[in-house]
Amino acid sequence: MIPEYAESLARQLSFDPALSRSVRQEVEDHLWEAAGDGSPELQRRAIAAFGDPQLIARQLAAAAVSGRARRTGVALVLALAGVFLAMNARLGWYELTQWGVCEQTRTLGDAVALVDRLAFWCAALGAAAAAWAYRRHLVAFFVLCAVTTGAILTSVACDAALTALRLAGWEWSTYFAIPLATMAAEIACAAVLVAELRATPLAYLRENT
């Protein structure tokens, strides 16, 4: 009786396998302790005292989704700040070393840089809108986070293209360390953000909107 009850509760949290597993263990532990010797009658009473599994699952899901939203929001802000800092560190390095752009690729570079700037501004606006939606509308919040992530990915892709254009034609040297390291940092920021966003409990959001 108890395993079935715990399973029915855990099933409703299947959008988050780790949460589902831990809730199942926690609820089973509670119910076996409440059921004493484990007789069917005591198991039945323990389950009755525990309450409606659907209601409890909904409340647990709400707590988990709110935590997920907070983590996604923090990841978004950190990724945006990380990309901004890495980008500026690289541009600072180019200035310091007077590392110019090859004339043949200047037009292409200017076009990519324009897209980069637009994408970054879109990301900044998206992050501001997501911050506004955070406590008001969870679905809107996650949608805005997804849009912002798309803009950040575009900006990082443009930065990668610009870095490749800037490094092209030069012999490998220690001067490459800063552009490559800052580019790696940008990619890492974007990857962390994508991983965080991929864990969005879409099923829960669909059911509760």
Partner: peptide, 10 residues
Amino acid sequence: PEGTVYPALH
């Protein structure tokens, strides 16, 4: 209901 304490803990 005892179960309502768990969402609060989480």
